[in-house]
């Protein structure tokens, strides 16, 4: 596939998202904003799972910390300056990722999964049990962040459409940032670590250092998503960082297609829409969600986005055009 046809779906998707608020009702603008936020969160997790080979089961901790940093610092403020609030959330989430990463990076495989889970639970319980930060009830935030120069509002996120475009630009910037670092030497090294860490270490790279940087970057981006979610809903509680959220994030990454940057966006669309509309079908909708997730694991391990090239190659092979080398290996390595 030429790079043009490959980026065509992305361009179409971006245009659709750009024009969406002109047609969508405010309910749907809000819903798509949430999807965009969850997509950023899932994308940051995919940097770990899909590119660095670190299966983190505690990623929701950074999401929650991004939200809590905003809520704690500005719950009594009369105005929330965006240029203070956003860096604060990123910094808080990044620092937490540095601490958790520093402890967990020295382990691998199943230990890494369990340790990230346990350490993120530590943060969960801290906020759950601390009366100072609202405990179980969480913190309400009655204002939205505002970008101001002098006393002029440049961008007020109180407006639903403004918020939508702010979230969308965050998604695009996150995407471009990840594309950039994955093409840089850093990205080549972390992908090599995923493929064979021993060999990379033997080549003289300090693999733990690279893994830690990747972990901190992913945590910081999850903090960005948490900041957006906290600002968007105006409410942050410990459930944001519960291990359920970490599990759902993994489901999103795999459902969309692990190791691709657009996969998590597709996955976020699917899961958030399911979470919104399945409850209308039945009270016991998690039964259906669980069934869908299990079917994906068993029958579609490379995610929903792997369907497109598969279908495409099916059509083309029927026409007698042989598969390119790259695509045929992609199809073969399933399962």
């Amino acid at each position: 596939m030429s790079s043009l046809t490959r980026s065509l779906p992305l361009v179409v998707a971006l245009l659709t998202l750009l024009l969406f608020p002109l047609f969508g009702s405010s309910f749907y603008v809000g819903l798509v904003t949430r999807i965009i936020i969850i997509a950023i969160f899932a994308m940051s997790l995919d940097l770990l799972i899909g590119y660095t080979g670190l299966v983190s089961f505690g990623h929701a901790a950074f999401f929650g910390i991004g939200g809590y940093a905003l809520a704690i610092a500005f719950q009594d403020a009369s105005v929330i300056p965006l240029w203070q609030a956003l860096p604060l959330s990123l910094l808080a989430a990044g620092l937490a990722a540095l601490v958790i990463g520093w402890i967990s990076i020295r382990t691998s495989g199943i230990y890494f999964i369990m340790i990230t889970l346990a350490l993120s639970q530590m943060f969960f319980y801290y906020f759950f049990e601390s009366p100072r930060y609202g405990g179980d009830d969480g913190i309400f935030l009655f204002l939205k962040p505002v970008l101001m120069i002098g006393s002029e509002d440049i961008l007020n996120l109180d407006n639903e459409n403004n918020f939508y475009y702010f979230a969308l630009s965050s998604l695009v910037l996150t995407y471009l940032f990840l594309v950039m670092i994955l093409q840089a030497p850093f990205g080549k090294v972390i992908k090599a670590i995923k493929a064979n860490e021993h060999r990379v270490r033997a080549l003289g790279y300090s693999t733990n250092g690279y893994k830690l940087v990747s972990f901190v970057l992913a945590g910081t981006l999850a903090g960005l998503a948490g900041f957006l979610e906290g600002a968007h809903t105006g409410y942050i509680n410990p459930a944001y960082m519960s291990w359920h959220e970490s599990g759902v994030a993994i489901a999103i990454v795999i459902l969309g297609g692990v190791g691709t940057l657009y996969g998590p966006i597709v996955g976020a669309f699917i899961i958030v829409l399911l979470q919104n509309f399945l409850p209308e079908l039945t009270e016991h909708w998690q039964l259906l969600l669980g069934g869908i997730v299990i079917s994906v694991v068993l029958f579609l391990p490379r995610g929903a986005t792997s369907l497109f090239p598969r279908l495409l190659s099916l059509i083309r092979t029927e026409k007698g055009v042989p598969l390119s080398q790259e695509e045929s290996t992609k199809v073969d390595t399933d399962g």
Binding site: G247, I254, V293
Partner: peptide
């Protein structure tokens, strides 16, 4: 299969058991 898929499948089992 990779641990990743084990985590996801057994996570889905939790959702199902909770509903059941």
């Amino acid at each position: 299969r990779d641990h990743l898929y084990q985590v996801l499948l057994t996570f889905a089992l939790i959702l199902i058991f909770n509903e059941l």
